[in-house]
Design a protein around this nucleic acid. Structure first.
Length: 304
RNA sequence: CGCGGGGUAGAGCAGUAGCAGCUCGCCAGGCCCAUAACCUGGAGGUCGUGGGUGCGAAUCCCACCCCCGCAA
């Protein structure tokens, strides 16, 4: 079970390791983009290419038809990677050996919808991947294995997603499954007292407050890329700020723009933030250096 | 018919009817111990496409194409 691009490498690794995949469950096709064109989830596209049976439902819990069909397939194991919906107990009861979930955080920390984004947002120095057995509560079941990843502080949401679905990560899943089905793993119960939770990201969180510290703003810019993208305003126009960004020493008014040796610096509460790419509403994304060329009067203006 | 911004030199932009410009980059030369610095010169444009109005259109009118912000 899975839906977005993040789940695709995991599905492919299962395919490449001679597991018999009797079917995939993915979210329904949804309209995306400015023109609201109906598009299929990335996982579904891979399933089509590989002639895998596909199940899609708005609400699995009440979809008795799909539940019966899944039962008839008699799966041994269910693997869930970023499905995007709460999975009802009726589905979890189907697979004989159980249900394995890949969760991109070091559980019990960052249970919930946006573990990668929130690890960056909170400036964590390490995070990781947890492979666990699922139970009725979200991200709560016993842990089979964990893989730690150290963060350098320049990761963004997109790059960290890629790292967490690279070959090393997908191999980690495959190895864990193999050990699990041959009874080499004793699942570890999670310590609920240490649990933290994260909600879906909202667009409201992505507005930059220049009165905060450069570190916090850097975290925001990286955590919210490529969606919803951290933004501010200049002369009442919306301006998106993209990673990478760089924190440097110095001080000026919050939001004030300084140009120094072609560097585009912005005042924060404590230090300065150097930005590399930005986008004014209605325009394409451009490099900060190019923006300066066409906007010589930008000096001494301020982001709001 | 959801709301809105935009398309001008390789890049970023200015230019609301009268010789198509600015900054950067690029090429050549110069200066310098030297340089991403500085000086001189140069190349590079179907002003998104098609039509219309005008003596004259990047500029005004009509249609279309493409890019983007909001919203979803």
């Amino acid at each position: 079970m899975g839906t977005p691009e993040f789940a695709v490498p995991y599905l492919k690794s299962l395919l490449n390791n001679d597991f018999e995949i009797v079917g995939i469950i993915t979210q329904p096709d949804k309209p995306t983009g400015r023109k609201q064109i109906i598009s299929i989830p990335p996982v579904k596209a891979v399933a089509i290419q590989n002639n895998i049976r596909i199940f899609q439902s708005e609400k699995l819990k009440t979809d008795t038809k799909i539940i019966e069909e899944l039962k008839s397939l008699e799966p041994d194991l269910t693997v869930v990677v970023a499905y995007g919906q709460i999975i009802p107990q009726a589905i979890l009861n189907i697979a004989k050996l159980g249900n394995i979930n890949v969760h991109p955080s070091l559980l019990p920390k960052y249970r919930g919808a946006s573990p990668i984004q929130n690890a960056i947002l909170n400036g964590e120095t390490k995070t990781g991947i947890t492979i666990m057995l699922m139970d009725a509560k979200m991200d709560h079941g016993p842990i089979l294995a964990q893989k730690e990843l150290l963060l350098a502080g320049n990761e963004d949401n997109e790059s960290l997603h890629k790292i967490m679905s690279d070959n090393s990560s997908t191999n980690f899943l495959i190895e864990t499954i193999k050990k699990f089905i041959s009874n080499q793993i004793a699942p570890t119960i999670q310590n609920d007292e240490q649990a933290t939770y994260c909600q879906l990201i909202s667009k409201e969180e992505a507005k930059i407050n220049w009165h905060k510290s450069a570190q916090i703003i850097s975290n925001q810019i990286r955590a919210f890329y490529p969606w919803p993208t951290a933004w501010t305003t200049l002369s009442k126009k919306r301006v998106k700020i993209f990673p990478p960004v760089n924190i440097t020493d110095g001080h000026t008014l919050a939001g004030k723009i300084i140009i120094n040796n072609d560097k585009f610096l912005i005042g924060c509460n404590d230090q300065l933030l150097e930005i590399s790419e930005l986008q004014i509403e209605g325009k394409n994304k451009i490099k900060a250096k190019d923006f300066i060329l066409g906007n010589k009067d930008i000096i001494d203006q301020s982001f709001e």
